[in-house]
Design a binder for these strands. Sequence first.
DNA 1: CTTACATTTGAATACTTGCTCAAATATAAT
DNA 2: ATTATATTTGAGCAAGTATTCAAATGTAAG
Lengths: 119, 119
Amino acid sequence: MADNNIVCSVEIIDREKVDRVNAALPQMKETSETANLFKALADPTRLRIVQALLLEELCVCDISAVVDVSVSAISHQLRLLRNMKIVKNRKEGKMVYYSLDDDHVRGIIETAQIHLDET
Amino acid sequence: MADNNIVCSVEIIDREKVDRVNAALPQMKETSETANLFKALADPTRLRIVQALLLEELCVCDISAVVDVSVSAISHQLRLLRNMKIVKNRKEGKMVYYSLDDDHVRGIIETAQIHLDET
DNA sequence: CTTACATTTGAATACTTGCTCAAATATAAT
DNA sequence: ATTATATTTGAGCAAGTATTCAAATGTAAG
């Protein structure tokens, strides 16, 4: 991004506007975190898992059946969702039950759905 | 997903629950589309572009300055956002001004922000 | 017509990511 | 203890992606 960008920085069209927008934008760190949250929901397998857990608590094997993806792949994705604090788990004997850890996720998904319906 | 999954399909823990969830889940096609929308917002550069356009209409060069990424890279990402109907553009002489094409995006991003603040 | 500038585009590259496979844990049942 | 079942984990591979670079458009100005 270096050179090409410096050229453009010199050639800003409307400096006032750029400064104004820059001042109003959130911190870059905040933007990255938001992007990461979207990234967690940006994969069909993961989104499907979350949509299922939106309805009911499920064990890994049943999630695999619902989403129709191998248990191993599901487990990998569940770890990612766990790290993102989107899902939590509960052990019961040999089995591990997963459920949503956060209820805002529902709102985010529903808003996205509305967007698509109206477009 | 084939073999490993078939094994697990045979070994469903709670068939009733799996059927119930399956019936309530949206169509797979719908899930994919929603995932794609999230994917568009899942990259820091693209999210930053959208956050900037949430505030004001901007030309490509000024977007490049605000986001601090080369004009070329910005242009590539703008095309993607255009294809997703998230942004639209308007020509004025040599310059091209971009703005948001959809207002639901604001809601989606704000909801995500709230999620992160409260976690 | 030539030059300058804003933007777009295609190819190449480096990086990321989702899945599979095999092996490791962990817990319950025989 | 041994076996069976549920889940996790790490390595490796194939596919996807964000950026760069060079070149192509398109438009305005000299």
